[in-house]
């Protein structure tokens, strides 16, 4: 069978041609192509990794921002709280001061009033004394207008004196 007998000439050209094509393709096609594919795969992987890193960085920034915001909020609350305390303190202090002042003024007023009252009482006493003297004078004058009454009075007074 000629079909299953390898022809020498064709085998010769095949081996020669195949080795040439293998050499040329290896040198000018397969190596550059495989290298380019490898490089591209690497660059894609690098790009993906860089993207992942950037994403992580953004996440970090975001959490930093959140942290800052939380801190700011806390600080604000703190400040507000302090302000509230200060305000309360001021109000209380003012109130205390006012109370004290009022008490002081009241005491002063009370003292003043007392003094005035005492002065008035003294004055009144003096007036009453004067009035009493005048009244007594007038009463004396009236009662001692006639002799009988003068004698009666003297007798009365002498009764009291007796002999002590």
């Amino acid at each position: 069978m000629e079909l299953v007998k390898p022809a020498f000439g064709l085998t010769f050209w095949m081996v020669l041609g195949f080795l040439i094509v293998l050499f040329l393709l290896t040198k000018f096609a397969w190596k550059p192509i495989l290298k380019a594919l490898h490089e591209r795969e690497n660059s894609i992987e690098d790009a993906l990794n860089a993207a992942k890193k950037a994403k992580a960085e953004i996440e970090g920034l975001k959490s930093d921002n959140e942290k800052l915001l939380a801190e700011a909020k806390q600080e604000r609350d703190q400040i507000l709280k302090e302000a509230r305390i200060t305000k309360d303190n001021i109000i209380n202090e003012a109130r205390n001061k006012a109370t004290a002042e009022a008490d002081r003024l009241l005491a002063l007023a009370r003292e003043g009033i007392h003094n005035e009252k005492m002065a008035a009482i003294t004055d009144l006493k003096n007036q009453v004394a004067l009035l009493s003297v005048e009244i007594a004078e007038k009463v004396m004058k009236q009662q001692l207008a006639n002799d009988d009454k003068q004698k009666a009075l003297v007798a009365d007074l002498l009764k009291d004196v007796k002999m002590n």
Binding site: A7, F8, G9, L10, F12, W13, M14, G17, I20, V21, L24, L25, F28, A29, W30, P32, I33, A36
Partner: peptide
């Protein structure tokens, strides 16, 4: 007998095509 037969021509054509295709791809 190392004659350039029909198959040798076909072989050459395929080699040229392979070189052209993958040369341009490279």
């Amino acid at each position: 007998d190392i004659s350039i037969t029909k198959n040798v021509i076909s072989l050459t054509v395929s080699i040229i095509l392979l070189l052209l295709i993958f040369g341009s791809v490279a």
